[in-house]
Amino acid sequence: MTSTYELYRRAGTRPLGQKAFSLAYMLKAPYFASVRPQVIEMREHRAVVQIRKRRAVQNHIGTVHAIAVANGMEAAMGLLAEATTPSGMRWIPKGIQLEYVAKATSDVRCVAETDAGDWAHEPPFQVDVRCTGVLADGTEVVRGTIPIWVTAKK
């Protein structure tokens, strides 16, 4: 278990702990600050962040910009990787493949998921993290994969 995951678990037991953790996560990875991901869930094989629809993340037609959703998906993937990567290993994203399938007309939940079997390899290995961006009514707006490379720590 990484220190990030342990911090999330401790923060969740305190009042405003998840909000404080979300802020700390943005400070640790400053490029997430533009989308202000609110951490909803972090555990092995699953992480969820919420991106609020606000002017700073909208495009010229007034919807949440697809790249803002991609940033939210990457934030969720990072949380999943921190919670799932076995002790003695490290990870780094190798790319991102996304499909924009509908307009993001409201807040977007970005979900990252894997299965235990995805991690059942000797390092080095690749894990394809499945990601989706969904509106509150269940409409999928973005879906894709973020491959991460997992290696032994030196």
Rank of each mutant, 00 (worst) to 15 (best):
C131D: 06
A24C: 15
Y8R: 13
G17F: 13
G17H: 10
V111W: 01
S3D: 15
A33N: 03
L27C: 14
Y8H: 15
L135P: 07
L23G: 03
M73H: 02
T132Y: 06
F21T: 09
A56M: 15
R10N: 11
R55E: 15
L23P: 03
V69I: 15
I96P: 09
W91S: 08
V111G: 10
Q97G: 11
E113K: 12
Q38I: 12
I51Q: 00
A56Y: 14
A29H: 09
A56K: 14
I92S: 06
G78P: 10
E82R: 06
A83V: 01
K53Q: 12
M77A: 06
K28I: 07
L98K: 02
P30D: 05
H121V: 11
V108C: 14
A11L: 14
I51E: 02
Y5S: 11
E74H: 12
E41R: 04
E122Y: 13
V57G: 09
A56I: 13
I61C: 04
V141Q: 00
P147A: 03
G138V: 06
F32M: 14
A136T: 04
M77Y: 06
A104C: 13
S34P: 03
G133D: 08
R43N: 12
M42P: 07
L7S: 14
R55Q: 11
T151P: 02
V35N: 04
V48H: 07
E74I: 08
A83N: 03
R36H: 10
P123Q: 07
A116S: 10
E99Y: 03
T105L: 09
R143S: 05
V64Q: 03
V134K: 05
E99T: 01
M77T: 11
H45P: 12
R36M: 15
I61G: 00
G133W: 00
S34D: 08
G138M: 06
A47N: 13
I67V: 13
D128F: 01
P37T: 05
G17P: 11
S22Q: 09
D137T: 00
P123A: 04
I67D: 10
S22N: 14
A33S: 07
R54G: 12
H45L: 08
A75D: 01
A136C: 03
A83S: 02
G17L: 13
E113W: 09
T2G: 14
A76I: 02
K19G: 01
P37C: 07
L23Q: 03
K154D: 15
F125T: 13
E6M: 12
Q126S: 01
T132R: 08
V111F: 08
M1W: 10
V150N: 15
M73C: 09
E113P: 13
P147C: 00
D137V: 03
Q58Y: 04
A20K: 08
Y31G: 09
C110F: 05
I146K: 03
V142I: 12
R10T: 08
M1R: 14
E6F: 12
L7D: 14
K53S: 13
L135E: 02
G88T: 06
I148F: 05
W91R: 06
R14T: 00
G72W: 06
R10L: 15
V142Y: 03
P147V: 04
